[in-house]
Design a binder for these strands. Structure first.
Length: 567
RNA sequence: UAGGGCGUAGCCAAGCGGUAAGGCAGCGGCCUUUGGAGCCGCCAUUCGGAGGUUCGAAUCCUCCCGCCCUAGCCA
C-alpha cells in the first residue's frame, strides 16, 4: 500500500473518534454479519475490509458472525466458502467466529421478557392479513396515501395467554406460518418497521447448526441488534437499507435495557459493467454465459481470485473509494488501476506468444542456441534474472507483423528492423505465404554485433518484440477474459427487453497452442505473471502437468490499442 | 403519499462561514530494450435550483426540484 497517501478520514471514522472522545464508548468492536446463503462478492469485500480495517486502526476487535436465522436458505457450504473468502481478503477474527443461532435460547428468553412486559404478543393473522393491516399505500386519484395500520384483533391478549401460546409455538403445537410473535409498538407509526413487527415465525425446518431443536425462528430484525449487543459490538456498520430499521433495533435494545451498539449506515458498492445479485448471477451460469459462480468473469470473491486479482489490490481499491452515504456507481477502471498498480510491482515478467507467427533468422546458424539473461521484474531488482534460450526459429506475436504497415504502426514489416527483447536486432527480408495468401512465416537476418539488443553504431529501432524460441517453447492454453457486459449498466435495457442482451458475446476467448518460454513449464495454480507487452496472467486450477492454463487477469494499458480505436 | 436518506467535474470524493483538496478516466508532452512502468502539464469562476442572512456562503435559514430506501412471517 502506498505510504505517501494519508488514510482517509470518512464520516464513520469521524463518528467513532467522537464516540471515543465523548466517552460514549471506551473501545471499538466491529463485526461482519453475513447470512450464509450465498457466496461473497466484491460488494461484501468493502463491508468486510471497512469493519475489519476500522477495528485495526482503533486497536479494537473484529468478529465474524453468521446471521443464520433462516434455515430454508442457509447451509454449511456457504459458511465454509464465506470464511475462506473473508480470510483470503485479509480479515482476521481470531477465535471470534459466532452465529446468531448460538443466541437462539437467549433470544427466546428475551422474547418472553417482552411478553411479560406487555410489549409483545402472539398474533394469529395470516401473512396476507398482516400485510393488509400494516397500512399499505392506497392510490387516491393521482395521489398515493399511506394510511395508518390497523391493530390486530389479537393485540390485547393477556400476558398469560401470550406466554402460553408462545411456549406452545416453541413446543411445536402449531403448523408453519400459523402464528407469529409480534412486538407491540404503534400501528400508526410513520416508520412501517415500527408497526408491530414480527419477532418470531413458526417454521418447521431443519437448521444447519441447530438441527430440529427449534421450530420457531427469530426474524432478522429481532435477532440482529441483540446479537450485536451480546457480542459487545460498539459500532454496527451496515448498508443504507437498514437505516429504516435502526429505530426498531433501538427500541428492542432499550426495552431490554442491554448493551446498545451504535449502528452506522453507508452506501453499498456498485461497480460499472458488473452485477452482484445472486439471482442474476445464477441465471448467467444457468444459461451458460459464465461457467460457474467462480468463473473469472463473475464478481464473486471466488471468481475474482481465480481471475488473478490480489487481495492487496482490492484493499487498496476499498481504501481509495472510501465510504459515504450517497449512492454511487464506481467505475471499474479504478479497480483495474489498483490491480495493475499492485501487479506491476509484484508480478514476475515472462515472455509468452499468444498468437504465434514463425520467424526464421536466415543467417543464424542451425543448431546454435544463445542464452540471454532476462530481468524478472524491472520494478524490483530483488526478483533477479533468468536465462532464456534463443535459436534460429522463434515465435513472435502475429499482430507484431504487418505486411503493409499502417501509419503509426512501428513494429515489424518488410525491410524494417526491430529489437527482439534481450536478444538481437533483426531485419525482415522476406515473407512466406500459404496458398490463400496468409503470412505463415517471416524471414529475417540478425546483426550479430547487436547481441543483447543494442547496436554499437548507435542506431535506434522503434519497437521491441517479445518472442519464444520455437524448439524450447512450452505449449499452453490461455483464456482471454473481457468484461461480461458490453454496457456500463448491465440492467439498462429498453422497456420490456431482457438484460441478457447486454452480455458480451466475446467475454471469453480461449487460445490453445500458445508458446510459452521454458520457465513456464512448471507453475502452480494461483501463480501470477506479467507476460511482457500482453498483460497479467494467473495460473488456473484447470492446469495439468505439462499443459499450463492461464487466465488473463487484465491487459497492460495499451496506447496502441487506444490509437487504433480512435482511427 | 408517509417516514428515512442523498444531490460538489465524465465517475468517485474532500470540504464543517474566509474565497473549490485528491484519485480514476480523458487530453498534451518527456522518457523508455514492455506502445508497460515512470515523470511533467492541462482538466469546476462554481457546488441540484431560487430566494435570504452575512463584509464574506458549497458550508447557515426558507422554499422548490431530482434520485434512492421501506410497506416479507427475507436478510
Amino acid at each position: 500500500m502506498p505510504s505517501d497517501v494519508t488514510e482517509p478520514v470518512d464520516f464513520i471514522r469521524e463518528i467513532i473518534r467522537d464516540d471515543l472522545q465523548t466517552g460514549r464508548f471506551d473501545r471499538v468492536h466491529t463485526r461482519f454479519p453475513p447470512e450464509p446463503n450465498a457466496y461473497l462478492h466484491i460488494g461484501h469485500a468493502q463491508a468486510i475490509l471497512l469493519s475489519y480495517g476500522i477495528a485495526q486502526e482503533f486497536g479494537g476487535k473484529f468478529n465474524l458472525r453468521f446471521d443464520d436465522t433462516n434455515p430454508e436458505k442457509e447451509s454449511l457450504e456457504y459458511v465454509e466458502a464465506i470464511k475462506h473468502d473473508a480470510r483470503w481478503l485479509g480479515a482476521d477474527w481470531e477465535d471470534r467466529e459466532f452465529y446468531a443461532s448460538d443466541y437462539f435460547e437467549q433470544l427466546y428468553r428475551w422474547a418472553e421478557e417482552l411478553i411479560r412486559k406487555g410489549v409483545a404478543y402472539v398474533c394469529d393473522l395470516s401473512p396476507e392479513e398482516l400485510s393488509q393491516t400494516r397500512g399499505q399505500p392506497i392510490r387516491d386519484g393521482d395521489r398515493v396515501i399511506t394510511p395508518p395500520g390497523v391493530e390486530s384483533p389479537y393485540r390485547n391478549r393477556s400476558v398469560e395467554k401470550n406466554l402460553d401460546l408462545f411456549r406452545r409455538m416453541r413446543a411445536g403445537e402449531f403448523p408453519t406460518g400459523a402464528k407469529t410473535l409480534r412486538a407491540k409498538i404503534d400501528m400508526a407509526h410513520p416508520n412501517l418497521n415500527m408497526r408491530d413487527p414480527v419477532m418470531y415465525r413458526i417454521l418447521h425446518a431443519c437448521h444447519h447448526r441447530t438441527g430440529d431443536a427449534w421450530c420457531i425462528y427469530p426474524s432478522y430484525d429481532w435477532a440482529h441488534g441483540q446479537s450485536d449487543s451480546i457480542e459487545g459490538i460498539t459500532h454496527s456498520i451496515c448498508t443504507l437499507e437498514f437505516e429504516n430499521h435502526r429505530p426498531l433495533y433501538d427500541w428492542f435494545l432499550d426495552q431490554l435495557g442491554v448493551h446498545h451498539p451504535r449502528q452506522i449506515e453507508f452506501a453499498r458498492l456498485n461497480l460499472t459493467y458488473t452485477m452482484t445479485s445472486k439471482r442474476r448471477l445464477l441465471r448467467l451460469v444457468q444459461e451458460g454465459h459464465a461457467r460457474g459462480l467462480d468463473d473469472p468473469r463473475v464478481p464473486t470473491i471466488a471468481g475474482i481470485r481465480r481471475r488473478g486479482y490480489t487481495p492487496e489490490a482490492i484493499a487498496d481499491f476499498v481504501r481509495r473509494i472510501g465510504v459515504s452515504k450517497s449512492e454511487s456507481v464506481r467505475e471499474i477502471e479504478l479497480l483495474e488501476h489498483c490491480l495493475r498498480d499492485d501487479l506491476n510491482r509484484r508480478a514476475p515478467r515472462r515472455m509468452a506468444v499468444l498468437e504465434p507467427l514463425k520467424l526464421v533468422i536466415t543467417n543464424y546458424p542451425e543448431g546454435k542456441v544463445d542464452q540471454f539473461d532476462a530481468v524478472n521484474n524491472p520494478e524490483d531488482p530483488a526478483y533477479g534474472t533468468r536465462r532464456v534460450p534463443f535459436s534460429r526459429e522463434i515465435w513472435i506475436e502475429r499482430e507484431d507483423f504487418m505486411e503493409s504497415p499502417v501509419s503509426g504502426f512501428f513494429r515489424l514489416a518488410p525491410g524494417r528492423e526491430v529489437r527482439l527483447r534481450y536478444a538481437y536486432l533483426v531485419k525482415c527480408v522476406d515473407v512466406v505465404k500459404d496458398g490463400s495468401g496468409r503470412v505463415v512465416e517471416v524471414r529475417c537476418t540478425y546483426d550479430p554485433v547487436t547481441r543483447g539488443g543494442d547496436a554499437p553504431d548507435g542506431r535506434k529501432v522503434k519497437a521491441t518484440l517479445h518472442w519464444v524460441s520455437a524448439r524450447h517453447a512450452v505449449d499452453g492454453e490461455v483464456r482471454l477474459y473481457d468484461r461480461l457486459f458490453t454496457v456500463s449498466d448491465p440492467l439498462d435495457v429498453p422497456e420490456g427487453e431482457d438484460w441478457i442482451a447486454n452480455v458480451n458475446p466475446s467475454s471469453l476467448v480461449v487460445l490453445t497452442g500458445c508458446k510459452l518460454e521454458p520457465s513456464l513449464a512448471e507453475v502452480e495454480p494461483g501463480e501470477r505473471f506479467q507476460f511482457e507487452r500482453k498483460g497479467y496472467f494467473c495460473v488456473d486450477p484447470d492446469s495439468r502437468p505439462g499443459v499450463p492454463v492461464f487466465n488473463r487477469t487484465t491487459t497492460l494499458r495499451d496506447t496502441w490499442a487506444k490509437v487504433q480505436g480512435r482511427a
